[in-house]
């Protein structure tokens, strides 16, 4: 029971990170029907920005307060990653809009290769460890053999994820920008006839996706304490799995899918074998796509002639 509780806590933490990345996939898929293959690498780029900002603040400016440092890291990673993704969309995807089906996907695969290798060349191929932070734990359940603990960083990840998801939900549901975005998702041509700047809305979708991926990137840095240029691919595919599991195109679905994937991965590692945890995640992707391709909250696709 204690093990179960502990794994539940770990799983929700990991799941929040996946959920944040998954929103980027699901929004882009919803609005332009494209699997943004480079999104996992955008996440990796944001984790690097976080590491660099973290070092800048702690070693150069000597700021001691970890809360201030993380706050600035979060904001700068969100802003810079948004600019990255905006530029990527402008350069690699926008000219291909309305082109044939595979062109944006190939372009995105190329972008993904480019991004991970750009970071490798620019920052070196080694892992980047940062000093561990927020390591104190609160013991929730005490028992003779196994203490169930929650660390400050896990609490922080939960809190930041919850606050930002609420803010994001508000943005999509209650503001005119969110309305424009949902309108474009339903029918791009009709939305543009009604005076919505479709290009701008799509750009903003990419920016929002990148900002949430950047939150995940900062959390990833805090949680694992080490970042590498190759860290984009596997979390990216898992987050895509989460988006598909939750029903692609559905925002709450992405979060639920992320939590489920995180929980499955953690429980699999705890109760079966850690070697095959990625196999478990990928198998779920395959099983979900085969047996319920519309996901948990998605709408079934209607086949039109």
């Amino acid at each position: 029971m204690e093990v179960f509780l502990q794994q539940l806590i770990n799983g929700i933490t990991l799941g929040s990170i996946y959920g944040l990345i998954a929103i980027g996939y699901t929004m882009v898929f919803g609005i332009i029907g494209m699997v943004n293959f480079a999104h996992g690498d955008v996440f990796m780029v944001s984790a690097f920005i976080a590491v660099i900002t973290f070092l800048l603040l702690t070693t150069w400016l000597g700021i001691g307060s970890i809360a201030v440092v993380l706050m600035i890291c979060l904001v700068s990673a969100m802003v810079l990653t948004s600019i990255w993704n905006w530029a990527i969309e402008r350069i690699a995807y926008r000219p291909l809009r309305g082109s044939f089906r595979l062109a944006p996907l190939i372009s995105a695969i190329g972008m993904s290769i480019f991004l991970s290798n750009f970071v490798q060349v620019a920052q070196g191929p080694r892992n980047k460890p940062v000093t561990p932070m927020l390591r104190d734990v609160i013991t929730l359940v005490k028992s003779d053999t196994y203490d169930v603990t929650i660390s400050y960083k896990q609490i922080m990840i939960w809190a930041v994820t919850a606050v930002l998801l609420f803010g994001f939900w508000y943005l999509v549901q209650k503001t005119s920008l969110g309305r424009a975005q949902r309108a474009c998702e339903q029918d791009r041509k009709m939305a543009s006839l009604l005076g919505i700047d479709v290009d701008r809305t799509i750009s903003l979708t990419f920016v929002m996706g990148a900002a949430l991926a950047a939150v995940a990137g900062v959390m990833y840095m805090v949680y694992y304490g080490v970042v590498s240029f190759s860290d984009g691919f596997t979390p990216g595919v898992k987050a895509f799995t989460a988006a598909v599991l939750g029903g692609i195109g559905s925002l709450p679905g992405a979060v639920i899918g992320g939590l489920l994937i995180g929980l499955i991965e953690v429980f699999w590692s705890a109760y079966f074998t850690i070697d095959y945890k990625d196999v478990a995640a990928f198998s779920i992707l395959v099983i979900v796509l085969i047996f319920m391709p519309q996901g948990i909250l998605g709408k079934p696709e209607v086949e039109k002639v």
């Binding site: 350069i91 690699a92 000219p95 291909l96 082109s99 044939f100 062109a103 944006p104 190939i106 372009s107 695969i109 190329g110 972008m111 993904s112 290769i113 480019f114 991004l115 290798n117 750009f118 490798q120 060349v121």
Partner: peptide, 21 residues
């Protein structure tokens, strides 16, 4: 050699932009 993969990725994007088909 360390720029090979970088250029490879960039070339994929560039060819798609130039000739999507």
């Amino acid at each position: 050699t360390q720029y090979r993969t970088l250029l490879f990725g960039a070339a994929m994007v560039a060819i798609m932009l130039w000739k999507p088909r």
